[in-house]
């Protein structure tokens, strides 16, 4: 279910972060346990813990001892700020690169974005 280019723990953290951004897991709600992630994605429990802990370190998730893992208050805003910082590198740079190769100029690019946005 995960691909080879990015470390698995990173992909797990990304996916959980996306679910939080999309509102699948609202703030203060519980997320699946490390072991449930391990079983679901068929990954080593140590790798799953590494991914989840990444989000704990970022203050996105927090542990309630003996209860489970929860989405922290303000987690969505935190993730938004972080993903915004990476937006240019992750999305704009490849877009501009590809557009240049295909000789799609600014005006046409704007049209394409407007079309996609109005879907």
């Amino acid at each position: 279910m995960f691909t080879g280019e990015i470390p698995i723990y990173q992909q797990l953290a990304d996916r959980v972060a996306e679910d939080i951004l999309a509102g699948t897991y609202p703030e203060e709600s519980s997320v699946p346990s490390t072991n449930e992630y391990a079983v679901f994605y068929q990954i080593s429990p140590i790798t799953a813990a590494k991914g989840v802990n990444l989000l704990v370190e970022q203050g996105v998730l927090y542990k309630k001892r003996g209860v489970g893992m929860f989405v922290a208050a303000g987690a969505r805003e935190k993730l938004r700020v972080k993903r915004r910082a990476a937006f240019s590198e992750r999305h704009i740079a490849p877009l501009v690169h590809e557009a240049r190769l295909l000789r799609i100029y600014r005006e046409e690019l704007d049209d394409l974005i407007n079309q996609e946005d109005s879907k």
Binding site: S33, N35, A38, V39, Q42, P45
Partner: peptide, 16 residues
């Protein structure tokens, strides 16, 4: 093969 992984990972939680 998938079943083997699932049982191993599920049983790991209480019996690491």
């Amino acid at each position: 093969r998938a079943f083997f992984h699932t049982v191993l990972l599920r049983d790991y939680e209480d019996h690491p």
